[in-house]
């Protein structure tokens, strides 16, 4: 498919649209040069679907898109709506409120608080959420009930990332955004983490968006969005999703 051809994403009318991005562009300055990272992205994300966004490795484009969806950044032009909420003009306070109640974040490097135990890291978020699940349930969901009272320094990388997932989903977010969740992990641990994400998506029906440079992961998604040169290059629909355990990389 040629780059300059318009991309038509099939509108799925059977499911509720959670995110709608229209004509997103992002320009940032890096030293003396202006970098056009996003050049007009149109994208809808639907309730309960599992989307993998694949970006070229070493490029920030896909991360920038995730940041905008997660309310961490605003586009230079274009519009993002989350349900009927306009994120582009939400302002600092509005974005904090949005992140607090609607989005779950999983970071590549876990970003757990070293001075809090696994349970407390989860509780940190449940204490400020409106309708959270008990931290124990969240840890149960990622298979870490038995490690609840351990501090991050006492946990392996995979365990830390699963705590981070528990922390992200404990507030019952509508959206789970994962930024290279397996980027710092080996394949065995990575699979366990992906299983946790998959389970959350399946059992809680949380719209899940994973960004990665690892093409193998895309085989477990409902949809795969390929990003290149600041645009959506291609969207694939997986007819048969693979279980994380069957992934190979």
């Amino acid at each position: 498919m040629a780059d300059n051809e318009p991309i038509y994403v099939l509108a799925d009318t059977t499911r509720e649209c959670v995110f709608r991005a229209e004509g997103l562009t992002k320009v940032y300055r890096m030293g003396e040069v202006e970098v056009h990272a996003l050049r007009g992205v149109d994208l809808d994300l639907y309730q309960g679907e599992f989307v993998v966004m694949l970006g070229p490795s070493g490029k920030r484009q896909v991360h920038l898109l995730l940041n905008i969806l997660g309310g961490l950044d605003v586009p230079s032009a274009g519009r993002v709506t989350y349900r009927d909420r306009d994120l582009t003009g939400a302002g600092e306070r509005g974005l904090t409120e949005y992140r607090r109640h609607h989005v779950g974040f999983v970071f590549q490097f876990y970003n757990l608080i070293p001075s809090l135990t696994a349970r407390e890291n989860v509780a940190l978020v449940t204490e400020i959420a409106r309708d959270p699940m008990p931290p124990e349930d969240a840890l149960e969901l990622v298979g870490l009930s038995h490690r609840a009272d351990h501090f991050p320094a006492q946990l392996s990388g995979g365990e830390q990332q699963r705590v981070a997932i528990a922390r992200a989903i404990a507030k019952r977010p509508q959206v789970l955004l994962c930024d290279e969740p397996t980027g710092a992990l080996d394949i065995t641990t990575g699979v366990v983490v992906l299983q946790a994400i998959e389970r959350v998506n399946r059992e809680l029906g949380t719209t899940t968006c994973v960004i990665t440079h690892n093409a193998a992961i895309s085989r477990m998604a409902d949809r795969v969005v390929h990003i290149a040169d600041g645009r959506i290059a291609r969207v694939d629909h997986n007819t048969a999703k693979l279980a994380p355990a069957d992934l190979q990389w």
Binding site: G70, T96, R99, R100, H101, F107, N111, I113, I128
Partner: peptide
Amino acid sequence: ARELASLRVLGLTRAE
């Protein structure tokens, strides 16, 4: 700083 920024991403306010 990194911890605090993570917490901001998780939805904690500046005051928190």
